[in-house]
Simulated scan of single mutants.
Amino acid sequence: MKKIKGFGGRSYGPKGESKDLSLASIQKMQEEMAKKVQELEASFGQMEVTATAGGGAVRVTAACDYRILSIEYDDELLQDKEMFNDLIIAAVNEALREIQKRRDEEMAKLVQGGLSL
């Protein structure tokens, strides 16, 4: 049999330094990764983030499954409706950014851990 030299200088062929990845083992790894992703998605409902706006005048707490859990605000804000609305929007948008950041971090941990499968 002929030995084939691949890009990057690594040899492939019958003289077996390459790992044996059968179709069944690849499918098993895919199933395990899909199960871990599903478990992570389910856990996002338990993870919470908090964001503030207006120097803490508005505080939004949200779950990482994109549910707003609470909005707290200083009563003085009720006197300026436009500012109140702007601060709520700012705090909710910050909470959404924090959710995405947290989800990305957790997914990165999963992928890094999955590489050791």
Rank of each mutant, 00 (worst) to 15 (best):
G8P: 05
G8L: 08
R10I: 14
P14D: 06
P14S: 13
P14W: 09
K15Y: 07
K15D: 15
G16P: 00
E17Q: 09
E17C: 07
S18F: 13
K19T: 12
K19H: 12
D20M: 07
L21H: 09
S22G: 15
S22V: 01
S25F: 09
I26R: 06
I26H: 03
I26V: 09
Q27V: 08
K28W: 09
M29S: 09
M29T: 09
Q30L: 05
Q30G: 11
E31N: 08
E32T: 08
M33Y: 12
M33K: 09
M33W: 00
M33V: 12
A34K: 15
K35V: 01
K35N: 10
K36I: 00
V37N: 04
V37C: 04
Q38W: 00
Q38V: 06
E39Q: 11
E39M: 07
E39C: 05
E39S: 12
F44R: 04
Q46D: 15
E48V: 05
T50A: 08
T52W: 02
A53R: 08
A53N: 02
G56S: 04
A57G: 04
V58L: 10
V58P: 01
R59F: 00
V60I: 06
V60A: 01
T61Y: 02
A62N: 03
A63C: 08
D65E: 01
R67E: 02
I68Y: 05
S70Q: 14
S70K: 12
I71F: 00
Y73D: 06
D74V: 03
L77K: 14
L77W: 15
L78A: 12
L78M: 13
D80Q: 07
D80L: 05
D80P: 04
K81G: 04
K81S: 15
M83V: 12
M83D: 11
M83R: 15
